[in-house]
Nucleic acid binder design. Structure first.
Lengths: 161, 161
DNA sequence: CACTCCCCTGACGTAAACGTCAGGGGAGTG
DNA sequence: CACTCCCCTGACGTTTACGTCAGGGGAGTG
């Protein structure tokens, strides 16, 4: 099974491949690692980073939180930290039964974080929806003007200047 | 009824009032003015900025584009420039001087910009919706775990309901 | 006029999130 | 072994969007 196509060990990627596949820069990947946000699954004895599919998925998720929700890296860290705790909880569970109270506590915490995230997302969707509605109203007005050659004198809605 | 809380000029606000009402800093207002984004409707002979309601509305709009859509100030400028052209078109129209072809051209341009904005907004809403769905799925899973005390690693047969 | 706020214009400082070298190894290839 | 990429670790530079003084006027008030 030892194919040495390009740079493949198992199915891990070098930083260059990982970067180009996720559409981010190598610098960004190193930076995020510095902040403890994205740690490559593996490292060669020589010190080269090796990224797994899970790693690149995590990168995609980071980008979503960044671009979609406008989160800063510290906020993202908070989300990731929580998810990681839940993940390790799953690992613990499979290994051996962790203290039930502790487990419930962690899961409850996870639910809280998700609830917070959820309301943030919902609020943003609603705001965007309102924004969209206004846009459509304006669009309709403009279209009418274009079709009829008459401006809508109707409303006092004003822009500056 | 002599008011002193802000210089009472008709209904224009000083920069301090304008800032606190819109929830931004005075510095930001001055900065945005430097970039040509928010120009106060009036200025006192002494050089003090006077903001109208339209001005503060514009500020609110800027904030929306910034926070909601993550636009940079240059992108916002593009949107504003377009809106301003349309606005001045309306003014021109009332002055009965623009020729029809030019008018149609400007309006068409306005429609294009709005269409672009619209698709941006729609795309973002959809992405957020997907994000929300995933969140809810995860939330449901966690809730199940919490209720049943069993992790949903893979559950073939429904034991619930 | 004297006070007291509020405001003005520079101009330097800052935080976040990387960009961009410089200098030096690691890993396959012929 | 010699090459050629790819990658590594600092470390300083850059952009965006303001924050923060410093020094000096403007506008009502008593």
């Amino acid at each position: 099974m030892g194919s040495r196509t390009a740079s493949s060990d198992g199915d891990l990627l070098g930083i260059g491949e990982a970067a180009s596949r996720t559409g981010v820069s190598e610098r960004a990947l190193r930076y995020w690692q510095q902040l403890g946000l994205i740690t490559p699954t593996g490292t060669t004895p020589g010190g080269l980073r090796r990224y797994s599919e899970a790693d690149t998925a995590r990168v995609a998720r980071l980008r979503e939180l960044q671009e979609l929700l406008g989160f800063g890296l510290e906020e993202i860290r908070a989300v990731f930290d929580n998810e990681d705790r839940l993940e390790s909880l799953r690992a613990e569970y499979h290994a051996e039964q962790t203290d039930a109270a502790r487990r419930r506590e962690l899961i409850a915490e996870g639910l809280q974080v998700r609830a917070g995230l959820r309301s943030t997302v919902v609020a943003r969707i609603e705001a965007l929806q309102r924004f969209l509605d206004e846009l459509d109203t304006e669009r309709a007005r403009l279209q009418r003007v274009l079709d009829e050659g008459v401006p809508g004198e109707a409303q006092p809605a004003g822009s500056n200047r």
